[in-house]
């Protein structure tokens, strides 16, 4: 997801603003600014994927929602269409900006979180639970191996922020 727009040069500021959130998360690394959940896979474009059985759930990370600010609208695809790894399947609108959401893996979209049309703010308040976006039947599960684990993603976020 392409959301490194406004706050991208602001690692220091973000460290301050997100510090408190990390404590509230179910699991977090001590050096992480935003919550990162164990057991999920992460794309460098800041989406997460949770693979359980034959279905993978996809959403955006806490780091992503924090950069975006209040989400006011979510554009989701239709059930039955397909998602392609690295390609946009929808968009998130915040007060600040619009961001495309890229799919971390390819597959058929079997469910979309229709509650987000009524309560898009769930992406901010619960990015890994209530704020999930789509469920996909992976067409190429090996794609998951190309994604980052929680530690790697945390490091990636730190480096990305520090680079600015």
């Amino acid at each position: 997801m392409a959301l490194r727009m406004w706050a991208s040069s602001t690692a220091n500021a973000l460290r301050i603003s997100v510090a408190s959130k990390a404590r509230l998360s179910p699991y977090s690394f001590s050096r992480c600014f935003s919550a990162v959940i164990d057991g999920l896979k992460y794309a460098t474009s800041h989406e997460w994927v949770k693979h359980e059985g034959s279905v993978a759930t996809i959403g955006i990370t806490d780091h992503a929602q924090d950069h975006l600010g209040e989400v006011v609208f979510v554009d989701l695809p239709e059930v039955g269409t397909s998602a392609t790894q690295g390609k946009s399947f929808g968009a998130v609108e915040s007060v600040k900006a619009t961001s495309d959401i890229n799919s971390p893996i390819s597959g058929e979209i079997v469910e979309v979180n229709s509650k987000l049309s009524e309560s898009p703010g769930a992406i901010n308040s619960s990015p890994y639970e209530e704020g999930w976006m789509i469920k996909v039947k992976p067409s190429n599960p090996s794609e998951l191996e190309s994604l980052l684990g929680p530690k790697e993603y945390t490091k990636f976020c730190e480096e990305e922020d520090a680079a600015h």
């Binding site: 406004w6 602001t10 500021a13």
Partner: peptide, 13 residues
């Protein structure tokens, strides 16, 4: 949070 703006580094928020 500083961003480039019209040649200046300015707070976006």
């Amino acid at each position: 949070k500083m961003v480039p703006f019209a040649g200046w580094s300015m707070p976006i928020q």
